[in-house]
Structures are given as structure tokens and as C-alpha cells.
Amino acid sequence: MASQQSAVAAMVRVRLFAALRERAGWSERSLPLAADGCPLTPADLWRQLALGEAPPGQAAEFPATIRVAINHAFAPADTPLNPGDEVAFLPPITGG
């Protein structure tokens, strides 16, 4: 039971919005945090999920136009993630 709970807790929720969601073809996923002892960041997730427009096999830099939110607050793309975090990738904002 305890191991089951820690397995659930060691996940992050990833959310995509607007044009980014439609390009990827999904809006929300739960992923395990990296288990190699190295803390996972939103930029790592961006590469893992191949969310950029670079051709397959080419490591895409995290784009300056995309903003990251962790648990509903803006955060740098290299912020280490914690179990249970909700990470959102936000395309350029066009409200108002």
C-alpha cells in the first residue's frame, strides 16, 4: 500500500493549451518523475515528449516563446519538479 501510494505520488501531470495542445494532439498526461536520481525539469519533459518542432532525433532547445507554469504559477523551464506537480506549457498569451 505504501509503495503504491509513493508510486502514485511520484508522478507529474503535464497540461497543454491552445495551439500547443492541437499540435501535440493531447491535452493532459501523467508521467513518472525520472528515477535516475536526477531531478526532472519542465525543459526535460519538453524534450522527452517531443513537444518542439525540431525533426525527430534532434534535441530541440526549449523555445523562448513558450512559458512554463508549475502548480498555476509561472516558473523557469529549468525548475526541478516535485512529485504531484502540475506542469503546464503555455503558448504566447493573447487575452484581453
Partner: peptide
């Protein structure tokens, strides 16, 4: 406040015209 919300509150516009939707690229 208006400029702040246009740049820092997460909202996204899509224009619908001729049955096609286009995400707006910027303010």
C-alpha cells in the same frame, strides 16, 4: 492592468472565419 493581463494572464484567442479556426499569434 490591461497591458499586464494581455501579456501575463493565460488566455488564448482563436479567430473563426470561413469555417476555419486560427490561433492568434500575438497581441
Amino acid at each position: 492592468l490591461l497591458e499586464e493581463l494581455k501579456h501575463h494572464a493565460p488566455f488564448w484567442k482563436r479567430e473563426w472565419s470561413g469555417g476555419h479556426g486560427t490561433w492568434v499569434a500575438g497581441n
